[in-house]
């Protein structure tokens, strides 16, 4: 084998090697757990609006900010703070599932041992969003609170949870008229990733399919118009080749000129190439191929982005 023939194989081999290294290092990185800095950590900012606290944050996997409203009935909401999931659970929970991390909801004015209703509502919750509660004294520390997921007007979902003073969701663990609820909304990361992916992949087909339908329709209209008004006028002087032809005579071999002539004749007399090809093999001769190559090269100039001067 000529050494030049071996070169592409070598390049492919190098690329495969790179891929293998990437694969192995990736596997190793999974084994090692974390992979680089956590760039998507939500940093909520809180504001009080009347009897509600509003958290404004950019959840994981989002580029735009969203808000979560906290409302308490049966007690007084004194404040809400953000809680880092990794710090609270020591890495036991996957932060990707908890896209807005955890919140510490502080409530007082509760009758000792009494119950309050805590509501978290946001547009970014879905019908499948769950509210998970964290309590260091309970096992496991982080559990599904089985909060109700309710539809509210304007595409808002509300997670509503009844919390008993001194109960399993009260992290201060005492029936003292105060409640500390540490909880956060949870969405299945893989469910979201795969679900939205499936929709979006087929979305591309829908977009392109509709565009195709639009093009077929307009194409049919234009063809009908052309039939009524005669042959289409080709766009004048568009390709660099035609420009050149007008300006300066191009030196060309007789065979190539003949091939171009035949190709143009076939085209202009509407004898389609496919039909012509089935007639005989004469157009398989070298001069005809050269002519077609020349035509193709000229047509490709229009599309050749890199080769432009």
């Amino acid at each position: 084998m000529h050494p030049k023939d071996r070169r592409p194989k070598k390049i492919v081999a190098v690329v495969w090697l790179l891929f293998s290294i990437g694969f192995l290092t990736g596997t190793a990185s999974i084994a090692m757990g974390a992979f680089g800095d956590d760039l998507e950590k939500p940093n909520p900012e809180f504001s009080t609006q009347g009897d509600r606290v509003v958290a404004k944050l950019i959840p994981r996997g989002k580029s735009t900010s969203t808000s979560i409203d906290f409302i308490v009935t049966g007690g007084r909401l004194t404040g809400v703070e953000g809680v880092d999931l990794d710090e609270a659970t020591h890495g036991a929970a996957d932060p990707k599932d908890f896209r807005s991390a955890l919140f510490a909801v502080k409530i007082d004015g509760v009758s000792p041992g009494g119950e309050v209703e805590v509501s978290l509502s946001s547009r970014y919750f879905t019908g499948a969003t769950e509210l998970w509660a964290f309590n260091r004294r309970e096992e496991p520390h982080l559990t599904n609170s089985q909060a109700q997921n309710l539809d509210r007007p304007e595409r808002v979902q509300a997670l509503v949870l009844a919390v008993k003073d001194g109960g399993p969701f009260d992290s201060d663990d005492a029936a003292d008229g105060k409640i500390l609820l540490i909880a956060g909304p949870r969405d299945s990361f893989w469910g979201y990733a795969l679900g939205t992916l499936f929709i979006r992949f087929f979305g591309i087909f829908i977009v392109l399919g509709l565009l195709q339908a639009g093009m077929l329709l307009t194409g049919a209209i234009f063809q009908r118009l052309q039939k009524q008004t005669g042959r289409p006028k080709p766009a004048p002087g568009r390709t660099p080749a035609s420009k050149k032809a007008k300006e300066t005579p191009v030196a060309i071999e007789a065979e190539a000129a003949a091939a171009i002539g035949v190709a143009l004749q076939l085209h202009l007399t509407e004898v389609r190439a496919s039909a012509a090809m089935s007639l005989d093999r004469s157009d398989g001769s070298s001069w005809a191929r050269q002519g077609r190559s020349q035509i193709m090269r000229d047509r490709l100039l229009t599309h050749d982005r890199a080769g432009r001067k």
């Binding site: 990185s29 999974i30 996997g61 990733a193 795969l194 977009v207 392109l208 194409g219």
Partner: peptide, 28 residues
């Protein structure tokens, strides 16, 4: 215009890779 659909099918790798790198700890 039929060839538009081919342009859609050729985006398959975009989505396969998206899932693949998620397994390797990349964010969405």
């Amino acid at each position: 215009p039929k060839t538009l659909i081919i342009g859609g099918g050729a985006q398959l790798g975009v989505f396969i890779t998206y899932i693949g790198v998620l397994f390797f700890g990349f964010t969405l």
